[in-house]
Design a protein around this nucleic acid. Structure first.
Lengths: 335, 335
DNA sequence: ATGAAAGCGCTAACAG
DNA sequence: CTGTTAGCGCTTTCAT
């Protein structure tokens, strides 16, 4: 029995002839190799990394920012023979607090994307189950490792770039602030209340430069069409802003499209900047001014951290660098 | 011991008081509920559905066609407490035949997307392991269930629509034909050789109408930028086609962008049609003429089939209907 | 180099 | 209604 095991795993001392004989009879008996379930129980390891997508899957999948990170992660995990299990995060506001999979599925480590807000039930569930967790782009909480980027500095750099060009009427289009996912201009009171970490940080980046946006426009998701709505709302008025800073590239590209639709030239009539540095082939020949973040690297870094957590090592938080990339969508304000 | 199990599962006869007592002591002992590994071995079920993405994950993720189906599937599987494990399909031409995960990961059922070509090592591996399999958009092979759409009729409908408008110089832009992923015009000889099922069927749909395309242009992947390259190549010449039928919406939207770039009006100077029926906010205000396929439904249907396979039932193949949706990108040829 | 045996944690069957 | 027990399939000692 142990011999058979060795024959398949290849590890351990075994005569080549015996090995061949075992594999031969296995083939005859229609035995397809060791049952992973038995192996997992014995080893106490499932070989599975749960990836909690902190948004409706459909939305997350439509966003290259998520999928590129996921791709980098899967690429790093594959060779380690670790699989990625997709776990939906909290979806609708009235849905049960956490997906049943999160309660019951086998996973050695969890990666929580877009998560880690204050009282996140996802994190408390994982903590209760004793599953080591790494959070992407979330708030720093005790007991979990966080991988993020320097949102705030990046956003400040873009805003400063616009200030340097001479803009004074600057609007900003934000990611969702909480699970209510309101759409439209936001008032002062709302800005004081808690909001999702990533949205807060990128907003703070703008404020850090001293700019007070003429409008802060919240969107329900990082999607082109929501950017387009925001653009129509912001740029349809005669006292429109001369520059729009967006918290994501998808939103920014929507704003550019809305501007074109309204007959405004970018950047002569209005400047638009984004955040993320994804490819936007449909804006061609324009290239969006944006803050580039290392998305695939982020996935690989996550992979490395997962590896360390699995080895039982202590892991450090990571803040990855970003850089301003000036494209063709920003320029001096109209005279 | 069994009592504890019952307390957690909730199934079976147990006094509410006992139950409470068990849960209470569990909390004190820091026991976080049954270990899924033990449960899985005992039940002989992992609760995991392997989804093999028959393309580099990065590419598949950038394609709404894959992600919408995946989303529909995850949505259906979630309530059944089944998780989706991402398994990369064969990636680079020189990579090992199949991903190690496919060999060794626990999964009760496999869903193979874009797979099922003649000698697919993915399918033979699954068959050897005895894992029930459903294939999406692949060739009908013995022992596996296939879910697909009526590509051929759909493509014929689009082509006929162009013929009815009076077009005679029609080009077609195709999906990849094999894993070589060539880019450029294809010669007659190539068309005779075997090619990926989906590409073949959509090509046959065009030919069914009697049209002989002036150019058949192969792309390496269904992405906007490849459509744009194709568009530049096809429309840059003075004897350009008056209509371009594309095998996907992403490709078609690239062609539209290329046309605009070249100063051609769509549809006055050139008509463009796609396939899939995804949202293309960046083409606004244009709406692509396309063949709509029920993507989310396809995911749900897959979910239902997975359920049936799990129950050990015989399952039938499914061919889902498609419908032509005429948008603003097709019109009569220029005089 | 090979074979025997224990036990990972669970649940279903059965005895009390 | 509650407690005991066997065994899912594997791998890893430990003898041989």
């Amino acid at each position: 029995m142990s011999t058979a095991s060795l024959a398949f795993s290849g590890a351990g001392p075994i005569a080549a002839a015996t090995r061949e004989r075992v594999l031969e009879s296995a083939r005859e008996l229609g035995y397809a190799g060791p049952n992973p379930l038995g192996r997992q129980l014995r080893r106490g390891r499932s070989g599975i990394v749960g990836v909690v997508i902190g948004d409706a899957l459909a939305r997350a999948f439509r966003d290259p920012v998520s999928t590129q990170v996921l791709d980098g992660l899967v690429g790093h995990l594959g060779p380690l023979d670790l699989g990625v299990l997709l776990v939906p995060g909290s979806a609708a506001p009235d849905a049960p607090a956490v997906d049943p999979l999160l309660e019951s599925a086998a996973m050695d480590v969890a990666v929580v994307m877009w998560g880690g807000n204050d009282d996140d039930p996802v994190l408390s569930t994982l903590q209760r189950r004793g599953i080591p967790t790494v959070v992407v782009e979330g708030r720093k909480l005790p007991g979990v490792c966080v991988v993020g980027i320097d949102d705030r500095t990046g956003m400040a750099a873009t805003t400063q770039h616009l200030l340097d060009l001479g803009h004074t009427r600057i609007a900003t289009v934000t990611l969702p602030m909480d699970r209510d996912r309101h759409e439209g201009p936001v008032d002062e009171a709302r800005l004081e209340r808690p909001m999702w970490e990533i949205t807060r940080r990128r907003l703070d980046g703008v404020l850090d430069t001293g700019v007070r946006p003429v409008v802060v426009y919240e969107t329900p998701a990082s999607l082109v069409e929501h950017g387009a709505s925001a653009g129509r709302a912001l740029l349809g008025e005669p006292d429109r802003p001369t520059a729009v800073v967006c918290q994501s590239d998808l939103l920014a590209s929507g704003v550019v499209l809305a501007a074109r639709e309204l007959g405004l030239r970018v950047p002569q009539d209005v400047s638009v900047a984004g955040f993320d540095g994804i490819e936007l082939p449909w804006l061609a020949p324009d290239e969006l001014t944006t803050v580039v973040q290392p998305l695939t690297d982020k996935g690989a870094t996550l992979g490395r951290i997962v590896e360390e957590l699995l080895a039982g090592e202590e892991v450090a938080d990571h803040e990855m660098p970003v850089s301003l990339r000036v494209g063709t969508t920003t320029g001096p304000p109209p005279a």
